[in-house]
Amino acid sequence: MNDVSSSPKTPEELYALLDDLGVSYSTRTHAPVFTVAESVGLRDEIPGGHTKNLFVKDKKDKYFVLTVEENAAVDLKTVHKVIGAASRVSFGRPEKMLEYLGVAPGSVTVFGAINDTRNQVTFVLDEDLMQNDVINGHPLSNDATTSIERNDLLRFLEATGHTPLVLKVTD
């Protein structure tokens, strides 16, 4: 059998899943943003915890998405000890990001879990970020921000077959 992955889900398919789960969320469209610095102007318009997502892998090709508060620092030399990686982590290749999460660099998001149907990625949510009642992330494209309540984000991840790790991964 040919193992061809289906095409990545669209933001509309993400919203449909959230609706099916009975999750309330709001999405605001904006100019595409590729970095935290570019997204700073949205802070006053969109309340809640804003995220930075790191797509990383260990030497055994185990992949992780680290979702942290946008200004938080992650020590890539030591975070492997916290997340259970086999070695120090490095950034995952764009091809794997597209294959597993259905997104390109600049659009990595916790919502990419909807595309990881074979559970190739472990999702790690930083404890500090999870202190926010509302978490914001890109809905599979970087020209919008979706706001979702913390517990609904956990429900979304569980619904995609992912049990997220909530760990202190920032300095």
Rank of each mutant, 00 (worst) to 15 (best):
M1I: 14
N2Q: 14
N2E: 14
D3W: 11
V4R: 13
S7V: 14
P8H: 08
P8E: 09
P11E: 00
E13K: 14
L14P: 05
Y15L: 11
Y15H: 03
Y15D: 02
L17P: 00
L18F: 01
D20H: 12
L21K: 01
S24C: 10
S24Y: 11
S24I: 15
S26M: 14
T27K: 09
T29K: 14
H30G: 04
A31W: 01
P32T: 09
P32L: 05
V33M: 01
V33Q: 06
F34R: 12
T35H: 01
T35L: 04
V36W: 02
A37M: 10
A37T: 13
G41P: 05
G41E: 13
R43P: 01
E45P: 02
I46R: 04
I46M: 06
I46P: 02
P47S: 10
P47L: 12
P47M: 12
G48S: 09
G49R: 11
H50V: 03
H50E: 00
T51V: 11
T51H: 04
N53A: 11
N53W: 06
L54V: 02
F55E: 00
F55A: 08
V56N: 03
V56S: 04
D58E: 03
D61N: 13
D61K: 15
K62M: 08
K62S: 10
Y63W: 09
F64L: 09
F64R: 04
V65F: 01
V65P: 06
V65C: 08
L66Y: 02
T67M: 07
A73F: 14
V74R: 01
V74D: 00
V74Y: 03
T78R: 13
H80T: 07
K81F: 02
G84Y: 01
A86D: 10
S87C: 13
V89F: 05
V89Q: 04
S90H: 06
F91E: 05
G92H: 00
R93M: 15
E95G: 00
K96Y: 06
E99M: 08
Y100C: 06
L101E: 04
L101P: 02
G102Q: 02
G102A: 04
V103H: 09
V103Y: 05
V103M: 07
G106V: 10
S107L: 07
S107A: 15
S107H: 02
T109R: 04
V110Q: 04
F111T: 11
F111A: 12
N115T: 07
N115W: 01
N115Q: 04
D116H: 08
T117A: 09
R118A: 15
R118I: 08
N119W: 03
N119H: 11
Q120D: 12
Q120C: 13
T122I: 14
V124E: 00
L125V: 08
D128N: 12
D128T: 15
M130L: 13
N132T: 06
N132L: 11
D133M: 11
D133A: 14
D133K: 15
G137W: 00
G137R: 00
H138V: 04
L140Q: 05
N142H: 08
D143C: 12
D143V: 12
D143F: 10
A144N: 02
R150S: 11
N151Y: 07
N151W: 10
D152P: 07
D152R: 10
L154K: 12
R155Q: 09
R155Y: 03
F156K: 09
L157W: 06
G161D: 05
G161T: 07
G161R: 02
P164E: 09
L165P: 01
L165Q: 10
V166E: 05
K168M: 10
T170G: 01
T170N: 07
D171F: 12
D171L: 13
